[in-house]
Design a protein around this nucleic acid. Structure first.
Lengths: 249, 249
DNA sequence: TGTACATCAGTGAACGCGCGTTCACTGATGTAC
DNA sequence: TGTACATCAGTGAACGCGCGTTCACTGATGTAC
């Protein structure tokens, strides 16, 4: 997975030999950076090529030398966002001792929220409402999985026997197959009940971040950070990453 | 809370004596209905008054007899969406025996997801990325709480002693005050650990629905309904609404 | 090292389009006597 | 019941605006000999 991302970055940033190539790489980046800023002021669906060009002091038609259409620019932003979040999660995970599962979990959770707060518009771009009429091309799905692979890696270290089966034994065959398929992604042996808990935790994490960023808790919670940390610590216990949440807060 | 919503509906639908008043009420509703449909095709930020008018076969300027501006129309849609979801949750809750806490929980969870699937654009409107540049007026916040009040009502029935404190004892004073404030909303005695679990469950529920609707699990889960039901059953156990998830699935 | 040609970035005008909002107006509906 | 006036819904033209995209062009950068 890591090697995969390196390849992507290679194509974008490395080996700009001639001045022309260097200039092109730089302007491509500048256009994306400006467009990212505009996302916040206008929202994804009304991102304007002309406005971006105007801010960069160039003719609107010049942007077409870099992106063949507005939708392609949007796609580039989405891919970048997934990649940026994925890289942040990978780094946070790698900073902890491999055996310290709860430490890795807390570190990744913390970093994901930080990333969202630092890049609210990009977070909204990938986790908010889909841009209507826009259909993500297949090349977006690969960087999208980076973050969840990190998460699966942490789960894989758990003695999954310790997670009880709370399904009541009535899992549908279809859902069972789904769970097995996710497990196979990580190439590890995770039990189905464990996978259900993992999915639940994952969705709760993004639910919490979305609620915070989209303002659904504005009049409810004031100390978002402490709340988030405690909830993540509870999740660590539930996922059997540790015995006690006390030392995580 | 219920009486409040009745008042709102009274103002909108009741007592249209003259033909003029009846026509006005009907057209107001028609405009909103058409606008709702357009939400899906274009997204909230590019909802077009002119397009709505065109579809209704009237001059674009005529819409201004009903809504003073595009933003006011958007506000009306948001208020309607919150109210509609809140009403659905209240009805689902009321259909179950008061003492059957896990039944009420499962019923409300099921109905909330159904509502989201039936009204994906309205769901995205209130739980997706905020419409940029649009600032919700204060009158939107009241209907927004309807759904959570239903949820608090269920929590209030639990012997909260049964929910263990997983915070490790290090709650910040600020967060503690936040939790107490939420508890006070429902005018019931819910312990802080219980409230934390309640928030977690609530956000997981909306995280699951958002992931499903926004397509983040498209290649991951195929049997959304079973997955959702099982996760909600697990949550019921965790919230001490029941002892076993088995009879809920 | 110098010249001739090819490649490419960027320009500016133009296309057709849709938008929100305003305004003076017409004609229908409601009300007071 | 009938008339005179007030209220209001809806019209259509106009305002100024921004949008995505195309196209023929100029001039700079790169390359082959």
């Amino acid at each position: 997975m890591l090697s995969n991302s390196v390849i992507v970055e290679d194509m974008e940033t490395s080996a700009p030999r001639t001045a022309r190539e260097r200039a092109r790489a730089e302007l491509t980046q500048e256009i994306k950076t400006t467009a990212k800023r505009h996302l916040g002021e206008q929202g994804a669906s009304s991102l304007s090529l002309r406005a971006v060009a105007r801010e960069l002091g160039m003719a609107s038609s010049a942007v077409y030398r870099y992106f063949p259409s507005r939708d392609m620019l949007l796609t580039a932003l989405i891919v970048d966002a997934y990649d940026s979040l994925g890289a942040a999660a990978e780094i946070a995970d790698a900073a902890e001792r491999r055996g310290d599962l709860s430490g890795r979990w807390m570190s990744v959770c913390k970093r994901v929220r930080e990333w969202a707060i630092e890049n609210p518009h990009e977070y909204a771009l990938i986790f908010g409402s889909p841009v209507p009429g826009y259909i993500a091309p297949p090349d977006t799905s690969d960087p999208a999985t980076r973050t969840s692979v990190v998460f699966l890696g942490i789960l894989a270290g758990v003695e999954t026997v310790r997670v009880a089966d709370s399904s009541g034994g009535s899992t549908s065959p279809e859902l069972g197959a789904d769970l097995d398929r996710i497990v196979a992604l990580g190439d590890e042996s995770i039990t189905r009940p464990m996978m259900m808990e993992g999915l639940a935790a994952w969705m709760q994490v993004f639910g919490m971040i979305s609620f915070e960023l989209f303002g659904h808790l504005n009049t409810v919670i004031s100390d978002y950070e402490v709340h988030y940390r405690q909830q993540c610590a509870s999740l660590a216990v539930r996922l059997a990453l540790t015995d006690s949440a006390a030392d995580l807060c």
